[in-house]
Amino acid sequence: MLDVVFSGLVLSSVYGLVAIGISLTWASIGMLNLAQGFIFTAGGYSAYLFSQVAADRGVSGPALSIGTVVAGMLGAAVFGLAVGGLAFLPLQDRDNFRTRSLIATLAISLIGTQVWLIIFGPQSKPLPQIFGDGVVQVGDASVTYGQLGGIVVAALTLAAVIMWMRSSRSGLQMRAMMMNPLGAAVVGVSVRTTGMRVLAISGALTGLSAVLLGQVFFVSPTSGVTPLTVGLIISLAGGLGSIPGTVVAAGLMGFAEAITARYLEQSYVPFVLFGLVVLILVFRPRGLGGLLEDVRE
């Protein structure tokens, strides 16, 4: 039973990071960043490149691990900014921004997959095991270091992001934009600067999830598709823009996936997830975040 809990936690923490990135971007600048899958692979590949270079120079141990994570996050953040420069800045003040930026990000991800294919070829690339090899016995379940480290790092990062949003000035600006973009602009919050900052941060979150998932699955040009789709589903179920809702939804989806895979069959996982989201949305069109807000009130 406990191993189901752990595999559920791993999946939910990894996908939850992607979902929070999507959710924040949508809530603050009104753009659905569907190039998140492309950014995911960008993070994976930059971590891969770093690990290759570092391994050539003989770096190993904690330096390699930390460097890989940082490289993945940085690379993904840079690509997040690039996506912003292509799809957010030029379109931001034009009419029909939402649909057009959606299409633009889709076009970027179409291009991106092929660019990875040209540069890295179709073979999957492995990432170094940043948490080392090893197994911990928790109750009757055996948990690998990778799983445990993934959960811990994801939780820490999430806490850092929440802290940033709560207590820093730029976080305050972002929250202002989430509440009322026009009002925020009127009181002097730069929509463009804040938007690019949000894109960089959600890119970094996605890059982190790429490194974490890279422990289990290898990086390939199309490896961003599943995180993107699951991330979308989670952010929808959580109610776009609500971090607590997204966290709860990520937990729910991760466990649903793990339980279905364990007790039913792997091929039912998509339907269970999809059915769950449809169920949530039919009863709560604003997702779980809306539900949480109602409860608080």
Binding site: L32, L34, L102, V225, T226, T229, V230, L232, I233, S235, L236, P270, F271, L273, F274, V277, V278, L281
Partner: peptide, 10 residues
């Protein structure tokens, strides 16, 4: 749009 985008993958 978000909901249905994942459908193909599923």
């Amino acid at each position: 749009a978000l909901l249905t985008l994942g459908l193909s993958e599923f």
